[in-house]
Design a protein around this nucleic acid. Structure first.
Lengths: 211, 211
DNA sequence: CGGTGAATAATACGATTGTATAATTCACCG
DNA sequence: CGGTGAATTATACAATCGTATTATTCACCG
């Protein structure tokens, strides 16, 4: 009874890289960084451990690639639902998309936490993080400015910045709470709460009927 | 030239336990969970590695104790400034304390992230986390209810719960942003923003002069 | 249709991990 | 003032880590 050898199947390098990245994100989210070993990654991807250093220069390199892929997808998910419509409606959809799956997801919060310390130390990851954060806030600030202008209100630069930070904070906070204690909220509660709260911060009615 | 032996100094077990806990929190916050090894902990505490398993049953036991100590201090820091005064003023001070050091601190965010995965898996840590979170939110909800009542407004249970979740979210979000990107905000900006935002969510003026 | 080489698998290796055990130190007590 | 034992240090050990190396597979080409 010899240990059976893993089947040999040739695949595109891009496919292999994508599989390894997906395995890293799965493990980071579900099991945590400590359990995300090269052997666990390879096993989750259905490959031999050697593949990691064949397709990436090191485990760290693979993890960095996984972080970039995750951040890119988070941004895409937030902006996916923007579409057309007036400014209020676009802001409404942006907030909704930020407070519903797949953006709101225990996995996403887990990943955020798992990567935080690497982001703190690795300059490249830190740059990716800051760019993503500020891009999101700028996008939000632009939508807020447009919605306020549409309602006939004007806000100075400083005031706009304050509103964007506050709205971003309430969205982040709800994202966090829903991700950490998902069973503490009923379906749609976080989204509605976000629309009402952002509306209260801005003095706009976002939760009401479509414009 | 022999390696010099560490000096033998007898200390109270409580002191030793406290030193080890402090070392764990330092390392978790500064270096991350991966670098928080028994040898690094002992070195940071100025002790020999064996002390960990002498004063705690395992490294995991020590880490759990450190988590509990950290959470207890966070709660104490939030409530420290409650004091006397009318309901609005008490709410104001609670929000302020939650958005100024030592509660707002890059270290605190690092610790939160470092512990998240252990909290997810370890039932005891999870219980501590949920109890702390809900205790904080209940405390906030009580202060909100009193402040609204003082202003002659009544809110039903469901409405009160929604307000508490939303106010907690904006506080959490600001806590997070200030902790992750501390250099992105000027002194006092987060605190003022929190008071204005919570006030806007509740329809109360918190940022204005004392009652 | 045998040879070649990149892709894949399997194994080996040194370093580091948490834990267990043995060796020291010294306050305290009779 | 010698003996005792808990506190402390130092060392040993098996397991596991990331990496390096060797062995296989098989599509492709002449």
């Amino acid at each position: 009874m010899t240990a059976d050898r893993r089947k040999f199947t040739r695949e595109e390098p891009e496919t292999r890289r994508a599989d390894l990245i997906a395995a890293v994100l799965d493990l980071m989210a579900e099991a945590g960084p400590a359990e995300t070993t090269v052997r666990a990654i390879a096993d989750a991807a259905g490959l031999s451990p050697g593949m990691i250093r064949h397709h990436f220069t090191s485990k760290e390199d693979l993890v960095n690639a996984a972080y970039e892929a995750h951040m890119a997808r988070q941004i895409a998910d937030s902006e996916r639902a923007l579409g057309a419509g007036n400014a209020r409606e676009r802001l409404r959809r942006f907030v909704s998309a930020s407070l519903t799956p797949p953006v709101v997801d225990p996995r996403a919060v887990s990943l955020w936490a798992a990567f935080l310390h690497m982001v703190r130390r690795d300059p490249a990851m830190r740059a990716t993080h800051e760019a993503t954060y500020l891009a999101y806030r700028d996008r939000l600030q632009g939508l807020i400015a447009a919605a306020l202008a549409e309602a006939g209100r004007i806000a100075g630069r400083a005031e706009l910045r304050r509103l964007a930070i506050a709205c971003n904070a309430v969205i982040d906070g709800l994202w966090l709470e829903a991700g950490v204690l998902p069973e503490a909220f009923v379906a749609g509660e976080i989204e509605t709460l976000g629309l009402v709260s952002v509306g209260a911060l801005l003095g706009l009615d976002l939760a009401g009927g479509a414009a």
